[in-house]
């Protein structure tokens, strides 16, 4: 296990860690806004929740990108 492996593992861990923080905050804000909207307009709950799911999936994609990078570092490291 040379230093490239160590740096790769650390990089993957940090990528996941940091990449999870921002989407988590963003998802929290999105869900809060959606709850607010549903509370204001209960009759629009269907539309709001559908849009919320799509938005959450979009935000989730950011974390997925980080996960892909982490997996690339771990399993398909071009420098290893």
């Amino acid at each position: 296990m040379n230093w490239i492996h160590i740096v790769s593992i650390l990089g993957a861990a940090f990528a996941i860690a940091i990449g999870a923080i921002a989407p988590a905050l963003a998802q929290g804000k999105a869900v809060a806004a959606a709850m607010d909207a549903i509370a204001r307009q209960p009759e629009a709950a269907n539309t709001v929740s559908r849009t919320l799911f799509v938005g959450l999936a979009m935000i989730e994609t950011m974390a997925i990108y980080c996960l892909v990078i982490a997996l690339l570092l771990l399993f398909a490291n071009p420098f290893a």
Partner: peptide
């Protein structure tokens, strides 16, 4: 490219 990576990442990460 993002279309591809989004789908791949979501499904693959779930399977993984």
């Amino acid at each position: 490219f993002s279309l591809m990576v989004r789908l791949f990442g979501n499904v693959m990460s779930g399977v993984f």
